[in-house]
Structures are given as structure tokens and as C-alpha cells.
Design a protein around this nucleic acid. Structure first.
Lengths: 146, 146
DNA sequence: GAATCATGTATCTGTTAATGATACATAACT
DNA sequence: AGTTATGTATCATTAACAGATACATGATTC
């Protein structure tokens, strides 16, 4: 499976957006996360629906935060993205007839449920302002290597 | 990505193997997990390397346990499979230049490390005999639905 | 109001890792 | 010698995300 980088990407651009007081275009933001504008808009649309960002068309348009970073938790972003799958492991059948397989599923499901609860709890405790460096960071084309 | 069902599959067949005292062929085991013999052999090879099962060729050959179920933990199987990836989420770049992205990565990595520790701890506490039903279950063609 | 700019969104292709399938060499048993 | 079963290489399939392109729609500027 491909790793899902949407959460990581959204957190990244949200913090960048907080560091300027004007809208940033999909073009600029996409370049900073190393992808293309359509991918960014597709994902940002979920955050807009959830009310964390606003978008504007035309001249002077682009994306801006709809609320301060300290009011947004990682959990809020995760949920805005419709809780993407966390785990790469799974079971072959959701409702097997075999008793053994059911026991196996139950054991794995139990652990995954606990791990998910841990994710949720920790994501809920971190607000995005905690991810902002001391010194503001410019939005550069390609914030990344590789 | 496709969900990784190797751990689930291996736990399933190991418990089945404990319920008979003769070797089971890849053919029979593969049918019970709803796949084909080559896939099963491919995955079982890891367990053989780790010493949990033995395989034999020719007449009367097949797979048998190399130690009792109560001596094998979920963790042991997970590690025998070379610790397959647990999480479906990830970051775009492992070593970004952008400070913000580094902070984002660190926050996610921190939570994933804790979740992984939880997996390891719980997997280490469960032995395979705990997954065996009270009544022995026959190895049927297709233990599963769907 | 025409040109430009930026989003909104549909559609198609690319990527990745697991899974499925086939083939055949090798070894063990009868 | 023939049959049975594993060992393993190779290629196709699948699922989900990522990337790319195209173009309609709406906002701003002149």
C-alpha cells in the first residue's frame, strides 16, 4: 500500500498559512509540499468543509485560515479528512465462519482499537500552534528533500 | 495499498496446525485461508526460518509445528514476518529541510512510536494457544466468507 | 465587459506493495 | 520410476493514494 501523506501534508500547509496574513494560492502551497495544485485543492476541500480554511477565487484569491492555529488540533484535521485508515495490517475476511479466524480477528481488532484510541487521544492533545517553529519559516518552493 | 493480511493468515493456519498431529499440505492450508499454495509457502517460509514450523517434501510431507502454541506469541510471529509495516499513514519526506515539516513529522513519529510500542507490548502478551477455540475446529476448505 | 487569475472538479494515468497465478526444478516417499 | 510436495522465480492483478491535465466557474482588475 502507498503511504497516506494527506494528514502530514495538511498539517504542514496549515502552519505555513498561519505565518502570513494574506491568502496563499494552491500553486504556491502545492510547490511547498512538492506536489501539484489539483492534489492540494482536492485535499484542502475537506478542511474547508470542516470550516478550518477558506478559499477565494480570482485575483487575490487563494487559501487562508478560518481560525487560529491554537484552536485546531491534529485530531480535528484528522477527522476533517474523514479519518483515513491508520493501519496497514488487516484481516482477510471481516466475518469469517471459522472460529479460529474469528479469534484471530478479535485479537488483532482489540489491539488495533487500543492503538487507535491512543492516536485519537494524542492527536486531540496537540494543537497546530505547537508545530510552528520559534522563527517563522518562509513558504519556499520545495520545503523537502526527496 | 492493499491491506497486509500475512500476520492474520499465519496466526490462523498455525492454530489449525496445532489441532492435528500430522503434517498439513500447502494445498490444504491455502484453501482454508482462501488463497493458493504458492502464496502460503512464500509466507510460511519466514516462519520456518524463525524455527516455528517445519516443512517436508514428498509423500507425507507438508507443514507441522516445531513447537507448542503456548510457546509462540503474536509478537514472535510478527517478528518472524520481519515486522511488516503497521501504519498506513506516513510523511512525505523522511528528512525535510522545512522546519515546519520536521515538526509535523516529529509529532506524527512520536505518536506512531507509542502506538507501535503498544502493539509490541500486547502482541508479546498473547500466546497462540489463547486463540484456539474450546472445541477443536476442522481445517475446512474456506474457513471464511467473502 | 473583456481579460486574467484562481478555485472546483472530473477524468485519466502512475505508483507501490501486497496478493494471486503459473511454471518448473528439486527432494522425498512408495 | 512415478508420484507427491515443497522451493522459488516470474508475471499479472488489485486497491488506494498520488500526480497530471483539462476546463468550467466565479472574482478581480483594467
Amino acid at each position: 500500500m502507498n503511504k497516506d501523506t494527506r494528514l502530514s501534508d495538511m498539517l504542514h500547509v496549515l502552519v505555513h498559512m498561519a505565518q502570513v496574513d494574506h491568502p496563499l494560492t494552491s500553486e504556491v502551497l502545492a510547490r511547498s509540499m512538492g506536489t501539484n495544485p489539483a492534489v492540494l485543492r482536492r485535499t484542502m476541500a475537506d478542511l474547508r468543509e470542516a470550516g478550518y480554511v477558506q478559499s477565494g477565487k480570482g485575483h487575490g484569491g487563494g487559501w487562508r485560515l478560518a481560525c487560529p492555529l491554537n484552536r485546531i488540533t491534529l485530531l480535528a484535521v484528522y477527522e476533517a479528512l474523514n479519518r483515513p485508515r491508520l493501519f496497514a495490517i488487516g484481516y482477510r475476511s471481516d466475518h469469517p465462519e471459522c472460529l479460529i479466524e474469528r479469534n484471530v480477528n478479535a485479537a488483532l481488532a482489540d489491539t488495533m482499537a487500543q492503538a487507535e484510541a491512543l492516536f485519537i487521544a494524542r492527536f486531540g492533545q496537540v494543537t497546530l500552534d505547537q508545530l510552528a517553529p520559534e522563527q517563522p519559516v518562509p513558504v519556499t518552493p520545495h520545503c523537502r528533500t526527496r
